[in-house]
Design a protein around this nucleic acid. Structure first.
Length: 159
DNA sequence: GCCAACGTTGGC
DNA sequence: GCCAACGTTGGC
């Protein structure tokens, strides 16, 4: 199956791309997703898929790095941890509601590709992150979008 | 800090 | 099943 591409949102106050680079093996479990649409995208991920690492609530918000999926979806243990912020009392151990994947850092972009610039790129206005009011934390990126975005990010300054 | 948009909850 | 109220997200 062809490699798929994704965009992962993170609040850098909580977990930044630098935090990922500093993690053991530059890898972390992408836990805490509690939205069904995002969960379904996590389930569709396969090892070797690649993703943009996006900083929300930043100045400016935008893409800051590239990651790869190191392990496909498996149960998120925090859903069973009573008292944990991601605890879900309705999830059953024999049929976990929520999953996570492992994400490994590939490289930091030479600069932040800001949201405004991102959404102005050819074919990119349809990105979930460019839709008004969008809150989806995991979303798909097409191969064409991936290439356009990567090429833009490598240029030193906004086009 | 503001506030629009979203997803979820819960009364009916 | 409807929908108002609420809490959260996230750009500005």
């Amino acid at each position: 199956m062809a490699r798929q591409y994704w965009l992962l949102k993170a609040d850098p106050e909580v977990f930044s791309f630098d935090d990922l680079l500093a993690s053991p093996g530059r890898t972390t479990a992408w836990d805490g997703v509690r939205n069904y649409q995002a969960r379904n995208y996590l389930r569709a991920m396969a090892p070797g898929d690649q993703a943009f690492f996006y900083h929300s609530n930043a100045s400016p918000p935008g893409i800051v790095g590239l990651v790869e999926i190191a392990r496909g979806a498996y149960p998120d243990p925090t859903q069973f941890e009573r008292g944990h912020g991601h605890f879900d009392p309705r999830s059953k151990a024999e049929a976990p509601t929520w999953v996570m994947v492992d994400v490994r850092a590939l490289e930091a972009l030479p600069r932040t590709l800001a949201l405004a610039e991102l959404c102005g790129l050819e074919e990119c206005s349809s990105l979930a992150v460019c839709q008004r009011g969008n809150r989806l934390s995991v979303s798909p990126v097409s191969g064409a979008q991936w290439r356009v975005i990567r090429a833009c990010a490598k240029r030193k300054s906004p086009a």
